[in-house]
């Protein structure tokens, strides 16, 4: 236990010290992206690991990004207030969509389809209100006057962004672990197996499912808002819609949804892979990088159903029987 704590402290200190030692802006940029997406994937896995496979998280991310940016540009609301408001918006939407689903027992593939529609709707709304949101051309938060960077949550310095993203990512892991150790995990495991039996154990099935959905949606909206503030440019394709939702599902599953760092490993692998392919293919064969990326993802999912990190941990622990939670043989999307 103490050794583990020491390991985590050293790892965290090393991560904090990194930008002061290694100042390459491209590498820092990639790292910030990895941290923000890791946080988004971790958020997804908070409900995804319990078989609540959502393809609507692109919608939550889009809301986080666009609500924050729109409030700033049109009403001058600081992101410090805008981000909580955008998260609240995503939370309310999550409850509106999820409550009827859970109340009327829409589970498995049907639940996936409902959430898919949610992504589509958010994307359509962003595109349709192009007078405000810029539609598919994208949207840029207005630059703050100099000296008001903190108020506008706009920083030119990559190191600052790296540290913000690191803190949020770490907070995401803490939340993931807190849920993993709480009774909520037990209740959700039970619910994902048998809702009637869970209810007979006294579990309020609808309320427990709403809890994890709400936490997941709020965190995902935050990731969208952070992405927006960092990139200073958002478009429906990059922070919203079905493609982004699928990207979350793939990355989280590739990394492994049953371990805290799984989604992070997924983000590292998918983003590094995408960057390497993009650079090596360059302009010689536009689009081919995506094809290779897609094939590799399929192979990962077929041959490492517990995700890369999950499989590695299993291999290390293989003489001992995994004690809890990791017995699942398949990824949640294939579970029902």
């Amino acid at each position: 236990m103490n050794r583990q704590a020491a390991f985590w402290t050293i790892a965290l200190l090393a991560l904090v010290a990194l930008p002061f030692v290694h100042r390459d802006p491209y590498h820092l940029h990639v790292l910030v992206l990895i941290l923000i997406w890791s946080f988004a994937y971790t958020s997804w896995s908070i409900m995804g690991r319990f078989g609540l496979v959502s393809l609507g998280h692109g919608g939550f991310m889009g809301i986080g990004a666009y609500v924050t940016a729109l409030l700033w540009n049109h009403l001058g609301v600081s992101p410090w207030i805008g981000i909580p408001l955008s998260m609240a918006t995503a939370g309310v939407l999550a409850l509106i969509v999820a409550y009827p689903c859970f109340r009327f027992r829409i589970t498995g593939h049907y639940f996936v389809l409902v959430t898919l529609a949610l992504s589509g709707i958010v994307l359509q709304v962003i595109t349709a209100t192009r007078d405000y949101t810029g539609g598919s051309l994208g949207y840029t938060p207005q630059r703050a006057q100099s000296g008001k960077g903190l108020f506008a949550l706009q920083f030119d310095d990559k190191t600052t962004w790296y540290l913000i993203a690191l803190a949020v990512w770490a907070a995401g892991l803490v939340i993931w672990r807190a849920i993993d150790r709480s009774m909520i995990r037990h209740a959700m495991e039970a619910i994902s197996e048998d809702e009637d039996a869970a209810a007979a154990a006294g579990v309020n099935v609808t309320a427990e499912k709403l809890k994890v959905t709400l936490i997941s949606a709020l965190m995902t909206a935050l990731s969208g808002a952070l992405y927006c503030q960092y990139q200073m440019f958002i478009s429906p394709d990059t922070v919203s819609g079905i493609a982004v939702s699928l990207q979350m599902v793939f990355a989280a599953i590739v990394g492994g949804v049953y371990v805290a760092l799984g989604p992070t490993v997924g983000a590292v692998i998918t983003i590094v892979l995408a960057e390497v392919l993009r650079i090596s293919f360059g302009t010689k064969a536009v689009g081919w990088d995506n094809l290779v990326y897609g094939i590799l993802l399929v192979l990962f999912i077929i041959f490492l159903p517990k995700g890369i990190l999950g499989s590695v941990i299993d291999r290390i622990k293989s003489p001992r029987k995994p004690s809890r939670g990791h017995e699942q043989q398949t990824v949640p999307i294939a579970r029902r």
Binding site: M183, H186, A187, E189, A190, S192, E193, D194, A197, A198, A201, G202, V203, N204, S323, R324, G325, E327, Q328
Partner: peptide, 17 residues
């Protein structure tokens, strides 16, 4: 609940019930 141990199955009922 197969994903929980025997003990965890019963603790779940003890907690929520």
């Amino acid at each position: 609940f197969h994903r929980l141990s025997i003990f965890e199955n019963v603790v779940l009922a003890g907690f929520y019930g």
